[in-house]
């Protein structure tokens, strides 16, 4: 019964995940796309939980849902709605639909072929204890084996913060454009 439930949850999450991803790339209004991405992130978090990634799932919701998406929505709001009211305005052209279908078919085929080659089962890993994926375990690894990665992650964030500050400063009236 538990198995059945897991499968149901998995299918629901996977379907939500794919559907929201498709929605992200097909809405013409970025506001709706951003909202769909939240759905995508949430359903991914569910999948992470199924994979014993409690800490990652929490991080996903906090970092993405809390920080990144809010930034996105702010920016979208700041820039104002420039693409009209309807999320579907314009609509995709036939070429794009064709390209998506053709490209998607090939990619899906590759994914399935590669995926089928992946061996191993997630079912009976004796070595997976309750502590797997817990904050303590992750934190311990981050401060031992992957100390460098941890530090570098913070540096990357810092660089991005500096970049955000530089790019966010106000424009100036200029006379000549040297490179354009």
């Amino acid at each position: 019964m538990a198995d059945f439930l897991v499968w149901v949850v998995w299918f629901v999450a996977a379907f939500a995940c794919l559907a929201s991803a498709l929605a992200v790339v097909s809405f013409s209004n970025p506001f709706y796309s951003a909202l769909s991405l939240i759905g995508n992130l949430a359903s991914l978090a569910v999948l992470f939980l199924l994979l014993s990634g409690e800490f990652v799932a929490a991080g996903q919701l906090l970092v993405y849902g809390g920080a990144v998406m809010v930034m996105f929505l702010f920016v979208i709001a700041y820039l104002g709605d420039r693409t009209g009211e309807s999320p579907w305005s314009g609509g995709p052209s036939w070429q794009i639909v064709g390209a998506v279908l053709a490209g998607g078919a090939i990619l899906a085929e590759v994914c399935v072929v590669v995926g089928m080659q992946a061996g191993g089962f997630l079912t009976k890993p004796q070595h997976i204890t309750r502590a797997f994926g817990s904050p303590e375990a992750i934190g311990r690894l981050f401060l031992t084996d992957h100390l460098i990665a941890f530090e570098v992650t913070s540096i990357v964030l810092l660089v991005a913060a500096v970049g955000g500050v530089v790019l966010g400063s106000h424009a100036r009236k200029i006379e000549g454009d040297a490179r354009t």
Partner: peptide
Amino acid sequence: WFSIALYVLTAIDIDLI
């Protein structure tokens, strides 16, 4: 790390489109 720094450096002349 270096890519993000370079993205910003590329755009740092923010007065130029």
